[in-house]
Nucleic acid binder design. Structure first.
Lengths: 211, 211
DNA sequence: ATAAATCAATTAAACGTTTGTTTAATTCAA
DNA sequence: TTGAATTAAACAAACGTTTAATTGATTTAT
C-alpha cells in the first residue's frame, strides 16, 4: 500500500474516532493529511469506501493472534484466559480511535457492507473464545456459563472505559488533560486485574453452586 | 410540556438513536413528526439544544428509582444486587434508542454542555451502586472488588448487546427481522441470569482467595 | 541519446445537494 | 386587536463528488 494512501487512512482514523463518520468532512481529512481534496475520491472512490478500507486495514492487522493463542498446547485454560484479557485490553487501548469507530458504525444504519464486515470480525473473535472456554469445561476446570454473554462482558467492560475519556478520568482519578499514553498506563493494568479476578470467580467450577 | 414539543422529542430520539446526531437532519425530524421545519428552531432554538433537551427529558424520567432501592432496609445486599441488575437491564432495553444516543454523544466531541450532563448522570449512578456494594462489604458478604470497574462490567455487558441488533441476533439465534419487543423478550431474561450469576461469583466473600 | 508519447499523480475550480437557521407573511385563538 | 403558533420561502454555508487542466516521471520511437 502506498505511503500516501496509508497516511490518509491513519488521519481518517483519528478524525472518525474523535468526531464520528458524519461529523468528519472529506475536507477535514484532506487538510489534516496534507493532500488535495480530490485525492480521497481518487484513491478510495468515496468517503464510505474509505471507511470500509480502514476497517479492513485494521482488522487484518491483528489477524491470527487469537488463533495462535488457541493452538498453544503448553498453556492451561486459565493461562489462556489471562492471555486473552491481556490481549484484548492492550489491543483496544492501543487502538482507542479505531475501536470507537467500530462501535459507532455497528450502531449506525449506514452501510450493510460495513456492518456485515464488523459482524464477521466479532463472530470470528467469539469463535476463538468459545474454544478456550469449552476446552476449560471439558477439563473440568470451568463451570457452565453463558459464553456469548461472557464475551460481551469482557468487551463491554473495556469499552465502557474507552468510550468517554472525560468520564474515565473522573472515575479513575486521572488528570483530565493527560494524553493517550498516560490514560492507557493507568487504565490498562487496572482493567487487567479486574477482568482476571472477575473471570476467575465467574468461570471456576468450584463456584458452581455458590449461593 | 406541550404535546407537540414532547412529540418532537420522541421522534428525534428515534432518529438520533438510529442514524446518529449528525446523520439525522432537522428536516428528517420535522417530516417524521409532522410539523413544519421552522417549529424545531422555534421550540428548541437549535438542533443541538434539542438534543440537550432530550437528554434532560429522559434522565429526569427515571430519577429517584436507584435512590429508593438503596434506602429500602428490608432488602439484603444480595437482593439489592439482583434488583439492580433487573433495573438496569429493563431500563436500557426499554430505552434502546436513548441509550445509543448517550453512548454516541459520550464519545463525540460535540458539546461540552452535553458531555458534562452525561457524565453527571453516570456519576450519580455510580454513587448509588457504590453504596450498595460497600454496604455488602461491611456486612462481610462481599469481598473487595474494583467498584468502578464492576459498574463498568454491568453497564458494558448490557451495552455490548444493545449497540448492534444484527450482531445480537446472530449470536443469540434470534430472527434478524424480529422487532424491538421480541428482541427484548429474548435478550432481557438471558442478560439478567448471566449478570446475576456473574456478580454472585464476583462479589461473594467466600470466593476471596480462589485460585 | 534525444525527442516524443504515455499515463498515473495532482491540482484548482466548479458541480448540484443538503445542511441548519432565519425571515416575513399568515393563521388562529384569546 | 393582540400575540403566540404556524407556514412557505429563502438564506448562506458546508457537504461529497466530478471535471478538466496540469504536472512529472517513465516508456517508446527515432
Amino acid at each position: 500500500m502506498s505511503d500516501k494512501r496509508e497516511h490518509i487512512l491513519v488521519v481518517a482514523e483519528e478524525l472518525f474516532g474523535e468526531k464520528g463518520f458524519d461529523g468528519t468532512s472529506v475536507r477535514d481529512i484532506a487538510q489534516k493529511a496534507g493532500v488535495n481534496l480530490a485525492m480521497i475520491s481518487y484513491y478510495f472512490g468515496s468517503k464510505e469506501k474509505l471507511l470500509e478500507a480502514l476497517i479492513v486495514y485494521r482488522a487484518e492487522y491483528a489477524y491470527g493472534i487469537l488463533e495462535e493463542l488457541n493452538k498453544d498446547q503448553s498453556l492451561s485454560p486459565w493461562d489462556k484466559i489471562d492471555r486473552l484479557v491481556d490481549f484484548y485490553v492492550d489491543r483496544i487501548l492501543n487502538n482507542l480511535r479505531f475501536h470507537n469507530i467500530m462501535y459507532q458504525e455497528a450502531t449506525a444504519v449506514r452501510s450493510e457492507d460495513i456492518k456485515s464486515r464488523i459482524i464477521a470480525i466479532k463472530m470470528r473473535n467469539l469463535e476463538q473464545i468459545t474454544k478456550i472456554i469449552t476446552d476449560g469445561q471439558q477439563k473440568k476446570l470451568f463451570r457452565q456459563v453463558d459464553i456469548p454473554l461472557t464475551v460481551g462482558t469482557i468487551m463491554g467492560t473495556i469499552s465502557s472505559y474507552t468510550q468517554s475519556r472525560s468520564y474515565g478520568c473522573n472515575i479513575l482519578a486521572i488528570r483530565e488533560d493527560s494524553d493517550d499514553d498516560a490514560y492507557r498506563a493507568k487504565l490498562g493494568p487496572r482493567l487487567k486485574v479486574h477482568l482476571k479476578q472477575l473471570l476467575r470467580a465467574h468461570l471456576d467450577i468450584r463456584n458452581e453452586t455458590t449461593k
